[in-house]
Design a protein around this nucleic acid. Structure first.
Lengths: 188, 188
DNA sequence: GAATCCATGTAATTGGTTACATGATTCA
DNA sequence: TGAATCATGTAACCAATTACATGGATTC
């Protein structure tokens, strides 16, 4: 009815995806996306307002007693259709910015000793990610084992995306250890 | 002498790192970063101007006959010190945006058949990346074999960063194949 | 009483893309 | 002659972060 829908941005589709699983408040959405696709409240709230203006989500206020009141958002049918239509289109080239890799790029300017320290810190940081991912996997496995063999259940993809992260982190750790091993040969 | 140096952004450090390896024009820098840390000319040229204003890089014009004239940039000593001082500081949390993963997040709304097609396309895209990375590795291995055991040579890190990318792409391909295998069990 | 969580937003700034503008040289 | 590469930039817009602003409820 309104103007011709131009393509939404990545965050909008991600928010539609979260709400397609279940209705949530802006605050809930931020928490939900924290590890998978971080976004600040200052970006999420305006995005929700924009999506509501376009008729892709709807909201209603919920009065709470033991908590501040909140506004629950739901995907509209139009919103779900928009999301489904987008999935499977040609994805934009992925976008990665990692200070650590930029540092490694110029690490030849530092002594091997100093670089080894950097890689050891990186390993520790990856350990923390690993912990988080393994816990998430264990929870799904314990609470919803049937969902893991059902691609029409959103937990099927949630589990497998976490599993992907696990594999990636382990690969990166292997690489870090190989780098440390090589560098130590040059420490007198 | 001038104001107190506040932290530069990721691109600035990346540009300093490129120029620390060897002097280049803005155009060269864009090409150099194309696969590792993409940036458009419209971002690189202003960044170079800013770095020059801060005294971290210097430039001089080069007259060419068989090509348009160009401006070559070099890192100043101050620029190199700034870069070295940054390396090893606590890196910001890495930043990843991948439409494909956002699509997988909501792929439970699609039929397994349709999702299999998405993963097969992803595999093909990863094959092209793999090709590029393997070529780059082979070139270094053939032309500068000694540099691979010398952490004070920038090619040591160039090679190992490419190797990291190789491992990551292979891990992702393994995951994609496992996903396709699982999904095919649900196609009647 | 202080810290943390729940809850929703706006304003200013930085980071990054798209589109625009121009022009020489080389190669098919 | 037309496409691709080399070469440098600006303007307008979109994406994202930082900082600001407020306030009730819970937990330590």
């Amino acid at each position: 009815m309104a103007g011709p829908d131009k393509k939404l941005n990545n965050l909008s589709y991600q928010v539609l995806g979260v709400l397609a699983r279940k209705p949530r408040s802006g605050y809930d959405i931020v928490k939900q996306l924290e590890h998978f696709r971080p976004a600040k409240t200052s970006q999420v709230y305006p995005t929700l307002a924009k999506l509501e203006g376009a008729g892709l989500v709807a909201s209603h206020d919920v009065t709470q007693t033991s908590r501040p009141n909140k506004r629950l958002y739901t995907v509209t049918e139009q919103g779900q259709l928009e999301l489904i239509a987008w999935i499977g289109t040609e994805p934009d080239v992925p976008y990665n910015r990692d200070d650590f890799l930029t540092m490694v790029y110029s690490a030849w300017l530092k002594s091997p000793e100093q670089v080894v320290v950097m890689f050891e810190e990186r390993l520790k940081a990856l350990d923390r990610v690993l912990d988080h991912v393994q816990t998430a996997l264990a929870v799904i496995l314990a609470d919803f084992p049937e969902s893991l063999s059902d691609p029409s259940n959103w937990r099927f993809y949630r589990y497998n995306l976490q599993h992907r992260r696990l594999l990636q982190v382990q690969t990166e750790q292997t690489w870090c250890r190989a780098m440390i091993f090589q560098l130590q040969k040059h420490i007198s």
